[in-house]
Design a protein around this nucleic acid. Structure first.
Length: 488
RNA sequence: CGGGGUAUAGCGUAGUCCGGUUAACGCGCCUGCUUUGGGAGCAGGAGAUCGGGAGUUCGAAUCUCUCUACCCCGACCA
């Protein structure tokens, strides 16, 4: 029996939307493209956030907060940057409303701003305007600042978590004395993103570099982590940019070197967003709903008591008390479901919400001094004693974390094809999957393939081996080995 | 911005073409009893100025005009 949720093959898109809804992750906001992140979904985000926050602090970064509003003129300082974001900015033009007999409330025309404000789509410009004030000497470098914030990008088509008009993210903005140091920072962060995705979210990623056409507006080089979703499409899960001296030039940020020379500062910026929540759903979800990696699951173990009478209810409460206490002492996130829904309802409900482990306890188990433990990833159910259960739960959580990762990795490997014929590329892209092949490095080739197949170069993987390869389109010697796929 | 569509209870819909009593159904919600090891059953109940405004008419969810919002397809995108 399955209620509501369509199977993934029946319609991946509506499957996704319904999981978000039925697992209580988020709801649509009243303004087009906006999203309310509900408590369960927000806890998930908070767990991701805490994991990554710890990583960046351990590597010497600090958090700060910069304003939401950016003077319009700031955005224009860096030519490529404004080009990239101009079409998706929310603009503040007035500061007051006034009541109006006909229309209720209207904008007060007298409150028009001298200079309009942009609601940040990203914070490079405002941050570099501040860095100009803060940097004079090589002694002021490096600056390793991160901020957790919301940004607004007025997208045409939105999808919960994957693309919303407003989203939450972290954006790191660092300033360095040398090109080498900035490049190292960019790659170090890419490493952290890979670690976050693979070790915490159980999502295997390909690390690589974006082509000219796909790179961040204003960057010299954009590195990224790319993941394969359950429908074999690619999702960009995080980006780390080497900004060169572009923003230093735009905001005139110079420093004096040890030997008294004046030089422009080198910059990086990097971000991951609430899109990661979407990536988790799309990577691990199945026909029963969400499957959450234990490390970031808001609830790791849910207890379903099964009883008919008040006496039995009390009996179960007493029976599981020491178990729960023990797990809580070991920092396992346990939830007991004492609502008056039927057990069957609860099983389905918590499976929808992706809780990694479920414990069932009823009179039958108490009689035999047992409990029933069921894992969400495999559906496997085991009967064990209380003592065994105490030991087994932490082990299983580790096991589930690993299993989700290896399942996703296997899926990606199975659907990644190393080929050298353009016809094959067309077929594979149509069916879904990653194509790994040679590319002559020409933007025109990239554009042609995109036009003909809708596939884009997701990245040039860091472990590319372009030697002896030929371009899949032009058959001339390949400049790079690349990953082609359809993207979200 | 181009093309198409929708608006009726918390959600999903029927009714609109061809105007006519108290606006119907499913889910959800509330109350009670019986249930509870894979989405419980029965009984009772609450909940809608039919997106806003104007018009036609004895009479409008239904016809006309107008405004607004949202959805789908395209171009654009973390």
């Amino acid at each position: 029996m399955r209620k509501g949720l369509p199977k993934r093959e029946e319609g991946f898109s509506s499957w996704y939307t319904q999981i978000v809804n039925k697992a209580d992750l988020a709801d649509y906001g009243p303004v087009k493209g906006t999203m309310v992140i509900k408590p369960y979904g927000f806890q998930l985000w908070e767990n991701i956030k805490e994991s990554f926050d710890k990583m960046i602090k351990e590597t010497g970064h600090v958090n700060a907060y910069f304003p939401l509003f950016i003077p319009k003129s700031f955005l224009a300082r860096e030519a490529e940057h404004v080009e990239g974001f101009a079409k998706e900015c929310a603009i503040v033009t007035h500061t007051r409303l006034k009541s109006d007999e006909k229309n209720g409330v209207v904008v007060d025309p007298e409150s028009k701003l001298e200079e309009e404000l942009i609601v940040r789509p990203t914070s490079e410009t405002i941050i570099w305007s501040m860095y100009k004030k803060w940097i004079q000497s090589y002694r002021d470098l490096p600056i390793l600042i991160n901020q957790w914030a919301n940004v607004v990008r007025w997208e045409m088509r939105t999808r919960l978590f994957l693309r919303t008009s407003e989203f939450l993210w972290q954006e790191g903005h660092t300033a360095h004395a040398t090109k080498e140091e900035a490049e190292k920072e960019t790659l170090d962060i890419l490493g952290l993103y890979q670690k976050l995705a693979e070790e915490y979210l159980a999502i295997p990623v390909i690390t690589g570099i974006k082509t000219e056409a796909e790179k961040f507006a204003g960057a010299e080089r954009t590195y990224c982590i790319e993941a394969m979703m359950g429908d074999k499409k690619a999702l960009q899960a995080g980006t780390s940019h080497d900004l060169g001296q572009n923003f230093a030039k735009a905001f005139d940020v110079k420093f004096q070197t040890k030997d008294n020379r004046e030089e422009l500062v080198w910059a990086t910026s990097w971000g991951v967003s609430t899109r990661l929540v979407g990536a988790i759903i799309l990577t691990h979800g199945d026909d029963k709903g969400l499957r959450l990696p234990p490390k970031i699951a808001p609830i790791q173990l849910v207890i379903i008591p099964i009883y008919k009478t008040i006496e039995q209810e009390q009996l179960i409460k007493d029976y599981i008390q020491d178990l729960v206490e023990d797990w809580k002492n070991h920092e396992i996130r346990v939830h007991e479901d004492w609502t008056d829904n039927t057990p069957g309802f609860k099983f389905n409900n918590w499976e929808m919400k992706g809780v990694p482990l479920r414990l069932e306890v009823g009179p039958r188990d108490i009689e035999k001094n047992n409990v029933v433990l069921a894992r969400r990833d495999s559906g496997e159910k085991v009967f064990l004693s209380k003592v065994e259960a105490i030991k087994k739960v932490p082990e299983l959580l580790i096991n589930i974390q690993e299993n989700l990762f290896s399942q996703a990795l296997q899926f990606r490997e199975k659907n990644t094809h190393v080929i050298n014929k353009y016809d094959e590329l067309k077929t594979i892209i149509k069916q879904g999957g990653f194509v790994r092949c040679g590319w002559d490095g020409k933007a025109s080739t990239e554009a042609k393939i995109k036009e003909e197949t809708k596939a884009t170069i997701r990245c040039i993987p860091l472990d590319e081996k372009p030697k002896d390869l030929k371009c899949i389109y032009s058959t001339s010697p390949a400049k790079h080995e690349v990953i082609f796929a359809k993207a979200y």
